[in-house]
Design a protein around this nucleic acid. Structure first.
Lengths: 191, 191
DNA sequence: GTCTATAGACCGATAGAC
DNA sequence: GTCTATCGGTCTATAGAC
């Protein structure tokens, strides 16, 4: 949701800095000073672009929604539905080091946002995860599976779960092994 | 790690209060005042039992380790390994409302502790998750599976993953559906 | 051992100069 | 539009009376 005009560059820099910093440190432990420093912007100036810290977090969630668009477009270049699903498991393996170091960006943020009182932010986190589930469901449905939704939830759950385990146990090998296991599983559904 | 003597009751009350409060609000958002109030203990008195807040969090992780012992003992009452694994999936369904409301106690805490700088606490969170994986591995091995470790990681990942999805999307039905799917999967491994 | 009061540090947000 | 200086509030941790 980048606005046009001069301020856009600085605003984008703030969102990018917030995204990285929050991914690595969590929302609660990340201060506006951290973000401003990473974006090379004076602290007080942040409030010209965002009324509150939460509004900046909302912009980060927006940027994750945009990232989902890029990733799904990349996966959709595979010609078959099972090829697209398998490309998704290869994606885990490619990113395994970062996922092991800091977890899933959307998953860990969703988990943290849940701990807040009311929050209008958690439903927004849900939207991003739902996009991923919906995309998977489409692929399973194209494979002719009537239980496509259930399988889609299982796939994304396997992803989020194994990333949490790899992250906590600091073992990227868990992601590789599970990705290959899920890839074989997709293969059995495709015939 | 309960010590004997008079102070034990108050200490236990503090750990129990910390466990609940941290589960619902997260570590970072939970203040010592919150915990002390929930335990009905004056704030400053907390420091008689715990030198720092982190030491209290460590005691909570210890209490999760103890809970694991109770749960695995309960599951081990089933006569067959596949029966024990299936009992575990029934456990998800029984607790689905709480899991949907606040996530997995150990999973969400592990995820949050990862975001801290150095932390000697994250390895302790890993210990609890590892106990669960080890227990599952034993059951798969008793079923004669040479890939028992891999299946154990897949099982715990499915659990942690679907709880994260159910929590973020506020949909306990996801847990029920996935638990039944995993239960059928265990059935196919048992023959 | 128990509790109160407060020190000391930090953070989100604002006021206002330029 | 940009930046500095700072206020008000909150939190962990400690000092010290009882």
């Amino acid at each position: 949701m980048t606005r046009p005009g001069k301020g856009a560059a600085k605003r984008d820099r703030l969102v990018a800095a917030a995204r990285t910093t929050i991914y690595q440190q969590g929302v609660e432990k990340t201060t506006l000073a951290d973000i401003a420093a990473a974006a090379d912007v004076p602290v007080g100036n942040v409030y010209y672009y965002f009324k509150t810290k939460d509004e900046l977090v909302a912009a980060v969630l927006d940027s994750y929604r945009a990232s989902y668009g890029l990733i799904s477009a990349e996966l959709d270049r595979e010609p078959t539905p099972d090829g697209r699903l398998k490309a998704f498991t290869r994606f885990w393996i490619e990113r395994r080091e970062q996922l092991t170091a800091h977890g899933c960006p959307v998953g860990s943020l969703s988990s943290e946002l849940d701990k807040r009182d009311d929050d209008e932010l958690r439903p927004q986190a849900g939207t991003v995860l739902r996009l991923l589930i919906d995309w998977s469901e489409e692929q399973f449905r194209a494979l002719g599976r009537p239980d496509a939704r259930e399988l889609a939830v299982a796939l994304i759950a396997a992803y989020e779960g194994v990333v949490l385990l790899a992250n906590t146990l600091r073992d990227p090998g868990l992601i590789t092994t599970e990705a290959r296991r899920v890839e074989r599983w997709i293969g059995t559904l495709a015939r």
